[in-house]
Design a protein around this nucleic acid. Structure first.
Lengths: 151, 151
DNA sequence: TTCAGTGCAAAAACTTTGCAGGAGG
DNA sequence: CCTCCTGCAAAGTTTTTGCACTGAA
């Protein structure tokens, strides 16, 4: 993955918002954008620690918020009482379908959703900043029946 | 509010699923359905405790799950890393618009959403059991600007 | 030089679990 | 009478906070 453009974007965001540009923040950026799929903050922290990074838990949490604020990451919540992140860099918007049995997450895109978001928030007088749309159900995949990946 | 019909519904659910019928469970039901707006599990537990109830935290958590399972309550997640519940008794389905500044929650109903849920899950081969649709934005209400109710 | 950012550890917030005793069926 | 359910407290999980030090601007 080409990280340098994302790094540049992050750098500009930090400057614009008067946040300092630190090596720790870019280290988190690199790990976050390289992560396959969704990850929790602590999960990323532990992965970094395993790889001999010295970045602290507090900095990881703080930086993930910044990365979500500048849209390099998307912050999600799949009903597990913890935040999950995923790269939002050079990707199109999408929502999620979550298997309540095995936890598998599928993505889908449905343009009508954006329309509804606009419509509803206009009608109720809100200034939209985002949305979260999760569908829960049982998937038909083999492993699911066996509950192999059950949480 | 007429609780007795809800109690009857809960009783039947418990019997059908071979759960025992205990006074504690009905105490939780009463508090939950009487609660105005959304509440967290611990919040309800503390409220009950304040009112001199002896029902334990474990029983409250357990019972709320049961009440959500039989659809007397709806279990929600507004991106705060905790579960929230609200009465679903004699109410129509709806989704939420959440103010990112003051935390105010508005409800809306949009039939198209149910269509999309059906469409998407059919296409991807899931057996739907529910969905969660939250729109985040800034509301235009007076108190909001002052961040009075900010979390 | 200054103060935002950092590392660390402790605390906080929410939820789950283990265990012994009690009551529903 | 058998266990499921309960209360209690302890432990678990994720996130936040306090504090002293460091390094970006």
């Amino acid at each position: 993955m080409n990280l340098s453009a994302a790094q540049e974007e992050f750098r500009q965001f930090l400057r614009k918002e008067s946040h300092r540009i630190t090596p720790e923040r870019f280290e988190v950026l690199d790990y976050a954008l390289s992560y396959e799929g969704h990850f929790g903050a602590d999960e990323l922290y532990l992965k970094m620690k395993t790889n001999n990074s010295n970045v602290s838990r507090a900095t990881v949490y703080n930086t993930l918020e910044l990365l979500a604020a500048c849209d390099l990451l998307a912050k999600r919540n799949f009903g597990e009482n913890k935040s999950r992140y995923e790269s939002n860099y050079e990707r199109k918007n999408h929502d999620h379908l979550i298997c309540i049995s095995c936890g598998a997450i599928k993505e889908f895109s449905e343009p009508k959703i954006e329309q509804i978001v606009e419509e509803v928030s206009k009608k109720l007088g809100y200034d939209v900043s985002g949305h979260s749309f999760n569908i829960f159900g049982k998937c038909t995949n083999e492993n699911c029946k066996l509950n192999k990946n059950a949480k």
